[in-house]
Design a protein around this nucleic acid. Structure first.
Length: 426
RNA sequence: GGAGAGGUGUCCGAGUGGCCGAAGGAGCACGCUUGGAAAGCGUGUGUGUCGCAAGGCACCGAGGGUUCGAAUCCCUCCCUCUCCGCCA
């Protein structure tokens, strides 16, 4: 959500933001509807003020005088109701349009059509030379008996899977390592709802627009989240926090559900694009301070790349271009991790900052130090780790010629072993 | 799932048709007082929106309705609490 007052004064900036983000929005239509609405609202309020004043006077009249005045009041009331309903229709229209407005991208976001035009800004170094023909994580997983896609599909349909034994343990290990890693950095672990109300989806900017990507439980008017960002960011919706409470730095580990509608034929093999996965997510709620927000964004990116360094996985960081930016995102850095079977990097993390886009929708504010007016917070989020996507990188980058997979040192305490081998019994 | 009781400002709590945007208290802020502090006293203390301002309008869980007029009456929904049932 954008500040409508600001939009009124800067419609061309918003329209340009939409163009750069490749989002269809008619800012002019909104401005017109808003102007109409406000004119009508002024009229309604004037009428209401009149009616209120005369009603008040009416209470003090003698009974016989009152009878006469009542008729006039009734008529005015009728007129007011008519106007009020027109005003309501317009108000809804304005709100509907306003929910679609894009947040303008930051200055240093590169212009571009889609993810192919994202700019690499950092690279962790060289990609390992295996010296033999690498297997895909699907082949490795099957050989080791730790990934079972066919049976996952039997149970739950396409894009589903089972992790068995060391596969499941490797997942738990990497999740637990991530939690510990973030705890050291002062993040509070939260266990959040993953089945949430519409308000949380709208508040974080996923709705309207993202309904196709979400599993809806319509009977209960609830929705499965695609990320715990939705819940973490919504925790204080409607509240006015104290400045001294900020920033709130939290993580959640949760299952994530995505329909992946419109991706038929894309990444159909393996664990890359699946309907259900686990993610450790970091969310920060902070003060309305652009400079701070930028710094925190970098820090959050650093928490994730530090973890990748700990896992010794090759990755690069890209500055996501305008066309690949979401409606509410001001700036986004993706971490892409090297996946030998793809012969390239695959997105594993996404660090976004939203300015006050989500806060406005969530009505999430804080009272600045001193006696200032409440301000909308700034919100940011980033992946810490997502599984099974990270497993692809782990299995493929740490594979040995014999099909076994080494466990990175950082994970060994959690796995209790330094190597995953085919089990004797299959 | 069944029965009952409730949801008022930062908090507690009063308020059953006009004098209520809302008593009283606590808290908080500022001032006085003090060697300093506590106590005491005084003043102030919601949000949004429109307006240069004066001021207007909206908000007493949410949404509808009755009424000239609703925190107060009616309906629907949500949430909380108590008891019963069921259950990981």
């Amino acid at each position: 959500m954008l500040d409508l007052k600001w939009v009124r004064e800067n419609p061309e900036i918003v329209q340009d933001a939409a163009r750069r983000k490749r989002i269809q929005v008619d800012v002019g239509a909104l401005i017109d509807a808003d102007a109409q609405h406000r004119a009508l609202l002024a009229q309604v309020e004037q009428m209401r003020a009149d009616l209120k004043a005369s009603s008040k006077a009416l209470g003090k009249l003698a009974p016989e005088e009152r009878e006469v005045a009542l008729a006039g009041q009734k008529e005015k009331k009728g007129n007011l109701k008519q106007l009020e309903s027109e005003e309501g229709v317009l108000r809804e229209k304005v709100q509907e349009l306003a929910l679609l407005l894009p947040m303008p991208p930051a200055d240093d976001v590169p212009d571009g059509k889609d993810d192919l035009e994202n700019l690499e800004i950092r690279n962790s170094g060289s990609v390992p030379e295996l010296g033999f023909e690498p297997k895909s994580h699907v082949e490795l997983g099957e050989y080791l008996g730790i990934v079972d896609i066919p049976r996952g599909v039997r149970i739950a349909g396409t894009r589903n899977y089972l992790l068995m034994g060391d596969g499941a343990r490797l997942e738990q290990a990497v999740l637990q390592l991530s939690i510990d890693h973030m705890a050291k950095r002062g993040f509070e672990l939260v266990s959040v709802p993953t089945l949430v109300k519409n308000e949380a989806m709208v508040g974080t900017g996923y709705f309207p627009g993202g309904e196709e990507q979400a599993y809806l439980c319509e009977r209960d008017s609830l929705c499965l989240v695609g990320t715990s960002e939705v819940s973490l960011t919504s925790i204080h919706a409607g509240e006015t926090l104290k400045a001294s409470d900020l920033p709130l730095r939290r993580i959640a580990v949760s299952p994530c559900y995505r329909r992946e509608a419109g991706t038929y034929g894309k990444d159909t093999k393996g664990l890359y694009r699946v309907h259900q996965f686990w993610k450790v997510e970091q969310v920060v709620i902070g003060p309305a301070d652009e400079a701070w927000s930028r710094e925190e964004h970098e820090r959050m990116l650093g928490h994730a790349t530090d973890l990748m360094d700990l896992l010794a996985l090759p990755y690069r960081v890209v500055n996501v271009c305008t066309g690949d930016l979401g409606q509410g995102q001001v700036q986004k850095f993706d971490i892409e991790t090297w996946m030998p079977s793809r012969g390239g990097y695959g997105e594993t993390h996404s660090a976004s900052r939203f300015h006050d886009f989500q806060s406005r929708r969530l009505n999430l504010r804080y009272r600045p130090e001193g006696a200032g007016k409440p301000q909308f917070c700034h919100t940011l989020n980033n992946t810490v780790v997502a599984s099974p996507r990270v497993l692809i990188a782990l299995l493929e980058n740490y594979q040995q010629e014999d099909g076994s997979v080494l466990v990175p040192e950082a994970l060994q305490p959690y796995m209790g072993t330094s190597k995953i081998q085919a089990s004797a019994v299959l």
